[in-house]
Design a protein around this nucleic acid. Structure first.
Lengths: 202, 202, 202, 202
DNA sequence: AGGTAACCGAGACGGTACGTCTAGTCTTCTA
DNA sequence: TAGAAGACTAGACGTACCGTCTCGGTTACCT
């Protein structure tokens, strides 16, 4: 359960209310959807969830970790870990799913808010970075498999490639100067792989 | 004068105090340096600059606009518009300068804070986006010149390439999972250009 | 103006809102009357007065000094400084007025609440003590005049007599085991003066 | 057993833990001594006594009741019921003992705190009043014996005299404008008795 | 000897107020 | 009439206790 870290339970004590817990996550998601991340406050979440503020503070350290928890619990798409047989296929599948967030304003708002918070709250930055790393790891693994298959030269800088991959996504998401559409995924992947010296083209 | 749009001055009256104006910008920069963007508030800037809050509000719409103004006035490096004769040389020069911010904590803090604010304040987002576009335009022009020179095929997606270029930079800056060092610039540019199908070899 | 100590005014600045000020005092009094001292909170006063909490905190350090201010401004009877020609007459007049609070539940509630607060909040205790001293001074002056007139021996312990006088009043007010009625004033004064060795009786 | 009213015991069940009970009373006294009555909370007592909050609430209705219980159990001096042969002697003995609390900060703090609580909590006020009455009864009995012995006229208002006696004490204790010292007891008693028309001279 | 009732600890829960903070706006005086 | 000073409304912050409520576990009396 990736959610509001369960405390060390030694012995007795009232058990954590699943109702309250769930109501908080739901309220958080709804509010982000309705009024946007920055307008969401712990107080509003508490009011909406019909829960005491102190109950929220007991389990979540800040609005950011709460919203992130809610996002992962209730919204986040299971990121595929594709296995199409080819590196290009795998990456394209992943990118297509990734770019799909642009079609869900809730997801966009949440991601943008969380990234913003990570800049402003160093404590949350650590938490956020861990999550980002977990998603980078998926792409890194795909690329690594490509190397092992001989689709990429062993000298390719996979870290940089991963950051190019996610960087494009986040940059467009955060700046909003260009649309981001799943249909663009194949072209972007193609460009990326050429950069890495893949044998499949040119 | 790139600073707090000057009002229409019709008639007499006390003229805008250049002292106050300058003190505000200086105070803003100093505070970002000392306590970080998120801890800076209009009130603190006013106190530090020994200026009335209302004077700040008269000339700047928000902390973000003010800090960005101060940043551009006092800190921002003149981004080079290099002309080395080759696309790779031009981009490498640009990237090297860009990655240089990582050596100045003030610049990093400011950029991260402004990007965060752009996520939270839609009004500022527009302002911020304009600034981002102006920097994208420089890179786009370099790439375009590369196409005209025949260094890139005319079919290359320059928009996507630009976003890959800046995306990698911002992604590392914002997430902080990887260092960003000017010495990495040539390799990143190389990888990018291969992706675009440059003729300069692999 | 015995009320929310006026700050040092050097130069410009918005002047204190008399509306807000008055509304706060009125709300405080009404709430003490309606729900009792202990149930009154700064937050409720702010809500009732339709004033921001911070405005209250700007002018009053605690609920206790605010209520005391309101009490003195709006409720406190002008304590007579009687001059009937005789000590017994003076004291009886004073006591009669004093005991009159027992007929006004608002005054009783307020006095009891303030005395309680003085026990719990050392900062307020000083403030409260000053007020108490000012009322003791009136009685002390009456007694002193009695000494000068020859109604009391110069050896009489006027301090102790004053404390006996007020002590009886407060003790009954605070403990509530006995009613306290203005009609009892003459007898109590009589008993007190006998104790001091007055020549007028026995 | 003057302590946390024993419940109706119908049938079996675990008996009340004397350890827990004693630890609570001790913790309460210690905390009043160390941090003052107002800073004492049920939670702090529970933590100090290493006892569950609910255990405290099971046996005592409020902090005030608990502290008063602890005070009477562990601290309160057995008030003398003196019998010296003369009214003046009896009262002086009693007053001397009474004024002795001023030399023990714990007792002063406790009494002041309890009196404060009686003003704020009507339920506790009743409880407190009973205790006050029990102490008044002692003095009333002394005075009554004085009447029967002929030391006081039968017309003397003993109730008022008792309240003057305790009133002086409490007034000084609560307001703190004057020290209260056992050495003052004889003079105060003397003054009181003159007021009542005692025959023992002036 | 077993049942069972009341105890005890731990600690989560809904509440409520606290006093602080910052945002923006508004008012007044001064230069 | 710009600017400094600072009072104002508004509302979230995170903390502290309150008194209540499960829990799991422990006695000790009473069949």
């Amino acid at each position: 359960m990736p959610t509001g870290e369960t405390h060390n339970r030694r012995t007795g004590g009232r058990t954590r209310s699943q109702d309250a817990h769930h109501a908080v996550l739901t309220a958080a998601i709804e509010l982000v959807e309705e009024i946007g991340y920055q307008a969401v406050t712990i107080e509003r979440i508490a009011a909406r969830a019909d829960v005491a503020k102190s109950t929220i503070y007991r389990w979540w350290k800040s609005k950011a970790v709460l919203v992130m928890d809610a996002y992962r619990t209730a919204v986040e798409q299971r990121m595929p870990e594709p296995d199409t047989g080819s590196l290009a296929g795998d990456l394209t599948a992943f990118a297509t799913a990734l770019y799909g967030v642009s079609e869900h304003s809730l997801r966009m708002r949440t991601l943008r808010g969380l990234m913003a918070e990570a800049q402003l709250d160093p404590a949350f930055a650590d938490h956020f970075r861990e999550w980002v790393e977990s998603r980078r790891a998926v792409v890194l693994a795909l690329l690594d498999r490509g190397v092992r298959r001989g689709e990429l030269p062993p000298t390719a800088d996979l870290e940089a490639a991963t950051d190019q991959f996610f960087g494009l996504f986040w940059y467009r998401l955060l700046v909003g100067h260009q649309p981001l559409d799943p249909s663009q995924a194949p072209a972007h992947v193609d460009q990326l792989l050429h950069g890495l010296g893949t044998g499949h083209g040119r």
